[in-house]
């Protein structure tokens, strides 16, 4: 390009930063005429840090979404649902936020989770991360980080510890890991935490 040939900027600034994985953003909006699965819309996929920011800067923040809506960001090829092959033996680190935290913490936490995922902050355990979901709900918003194997305690705990550190989670916010299979059968009532931090 012109800029590159002028020598004005180091050429590395013109190269996008490739991510380890390609990620897909999903958006869920409740629609009575559709099934839950049909209401999950795949928005777009990206595989560079710059393309992540183009997308992030272009869409509403999580706190601006209507109640009942979700954003999900998953590795390409993994659908944001329990039934997916990559999720069916897994679970999620769940962070429940109280109503006030929608204005104080929600957007910061969600961005931090996204940065952890695209930046591969979980090191070798990053391979076990499937994606993350933010649920905007009247009773309190939820953030979930989904991993592929609930039986891998080392991996689940390391991912949880890193999340807690990066989100600077204090005692006012509890973090528990719930196995999807437990959540599926316990729909509507409290699911037990298999791991806690």
């Amino acid at each position: 390009t012109e800029v590159a040939s002028s020598g004005e900027f180091p050429p590395e600034y013109l190269i996008k930063h490739p991510l380890q994985n390609t990620w897909t953003l999903w958006y869920y909006e409740p629609d009575r005429t559709k099934t839950w699965e049909e209401s999950q819309r795949e928005i777009t996929s990206f595989d560079t840090a710059e393309d992540f920011w183009s997308l992030y800067n272009h869409i509403k923040t999580a706190s601006e979404l209507r109640q009942g809506c979700d954003y999900s960001m998953f590795k390409q090829g993994i659908r944001p649902m329990w039934e997916d092959d990559q999720n069916k033996c897994g679970g999620r680190w769940l962070i429940n936020l109280d109503k006030k935290q929608r204005t104080t913490d929600l957007d910061n936490f969600w961005l931090e989770i996204l940065l952890c995922m695209i930046g591969e902050a979980f090191n070798e355990y990053s391979d076990d991360v499937c994606g993350a979901v933010v649920n905007i709900r009247p009773k309190g918003d939820k953030l979930g980080v989904w991993t592929s194997n609930a039986d891998c305690a080392d991996s689940v705990m390391e991912i949880g510890r890193k999340l807690k550190e990066r989100l600077r989670i204090t005692s006012k916010t509890t973090m528990g890991y719930q196995v999807h299979k437990d959540t599926m059968v316990k729909a509507g009532s409290q699911t037990k935490n298999t791991y806690t931090l």
Binding site: E50, S54, E120, N123
Partner: peptide, 20 residues
């Protein structure tokens, strides 16, 4: 190796005009 980036590096790219 794994293509990993720390949070400060990623945050710097958010509004970097040269990264577009």
């Amino acid at each position: 190796g794994r293509k990993s980036y720390d949070r400060e590096f990623l945050l710097r790219l958010q509004f970097d005009p040269n990264s577009k």
